[in-house]
């Protein structure tokens, strides 16, 4: 009796250990990913290469070069470049000041904590906060006008324009940069600076020959991440401009809602273009990060 029980257990165990059974454990996850991530995207990709009647065509991709769509891509890319550039530069400066600037440690903790919150404080509420600050009746706008006689909106600035959006994006870009560049900044060992100085290098020489070459891959990889972050931003733009600022996600949003391009398959091509840009950006990010991590051991 006991013998038979043991045999059954052993059989069960060998069944559990067989390769096929092992792969079965992956089925729920693989099925979910296939159904709700991979297939929907493949469906759009396939549709991008078809006419509405289902024939193969490159016309949709060619139509991406039409003035409306090309200008949307150009606007999106410029806005992402500017906000990622400002975010990366600003984040780098603040991070340097906090890590190597001789400031008290509590300040760094405060900034790290705040950055964790601010990098997630995106979307619609962020737009509201900036309307209350720099909108037509915003605090800063009013103060500048009443105290200094500067009329922001008369001088050409608008929160609902390119630079207004860039300034708003900066509110989540800068903290994100601060968070992801900190490990690289801490990786700049003080010994390196001391070694350079004891060999007679000036501060500028240390920066040009040692610190910047070590930091560059990290900064570039972070820049890529910020670029992707800005490129996908949609809710903030909707809340600020009421979907009237024609970046690519907005165009796609309107197309999904009301087929404004009068060709459903052109919408698929638009989505494909977005995915392509995100894939390229993220690949660059991973490659650069792998290079950067050499110095962080």
């Amino acid at each position: 009796m006991a013998h038979r029980l043991l045999r059954a257990r052993a059989d069960g165990a060998s069944l559990m250990g067989s390769p096929l059974w092992r792969w079965l454990g992956l089925v729920p996850f693989a099925l979910f990913v296939l159904l709700f991530l991979i297939l929907p995207v493949l469906y759009l990709v396939q549709g991008a290469f078809q006419t509405p009647q289902g024939q193969f065509t490159f016309d949709n991709l060619r139509a991406l070069a039409s003035p409306t769509i090309a200008s949307a891509y150009s606007l999106s890319i410029r806005l992402s470049l500017v906000s990622a550039g400002l975010g990366a530069l600003g984040g780098l400066l603040v991070c340097y000041a906090l890590v190597h600037g001789g400031l008290p440690a509590w300040l760094r903790h405060a900034f790290t904590t705040f950055s964790g919150v601010a990098s997630n404080f995106a979307g619609v509420p962020l737009a509201f906060a900036f309307i209350a600050t720099l909108g037509r009746l915003g605090l800063v706008t009013v103060l500048l006008r009443e105290l200094f006689g500067i009329n922001l909106y008369a001088s050409g600035f608008s929160l609902f324009s390119f630079w207004g959006l860039a300034l708003t994006y900066l509110y989540f870009q800068l903290p994100l940069m601060l968070l992801i560049i900190t490990p690289a900044m801490q990786g700049l060992k003080r010994e390196w600076q001391e070694a350079a100085e004891s060999l007679g290098a000036s501060r500028a020489q240390y920066w040009r020959r040692v610190a910047l070459p070590v930091l560059t891959p990290s900064v570039l990889s972070c820049f890529m991440l910020l670029f992707a972050n800005a490129f996908g931003t949609l809710a903030t733009v909707v809340a600020l401009t009421g979907a009237n600022f024609p970046v690519v996600p907005i165009l796609l949003f309107q197309q999904i809602r009301g087929n404004v391009l009068y060709n459903p398959n052109l919408g698929f091509a638009l989505a494909l273009g977005m995915v392509a840009i995100m894939v390229v950006t993220n690949l660059l990010y991973f490659v650069l990060r792998a290079r950067a991590e050499r110095w962080q051991r």
Binding site: V33, F36, L37, I38, L39, P40, V41, Y43, L44, G47, A228, F231, G232, L234, P249, L252, F253, I256, G267, A271, M274, V275, M278, V279, N282
Partner: peptide, 18 residues
């Protein structure tokens, strides 16, 4: 990690069509 690369608007667009 794919959802970090594919924008949510593309994912939901795919759902609505598929």
């Amino acid at each position: 990690l794919l959802p970090l690369i594919i924008p949510p608007i593309v994912v939901v667009f795919g759902y609505m069509r598929l």
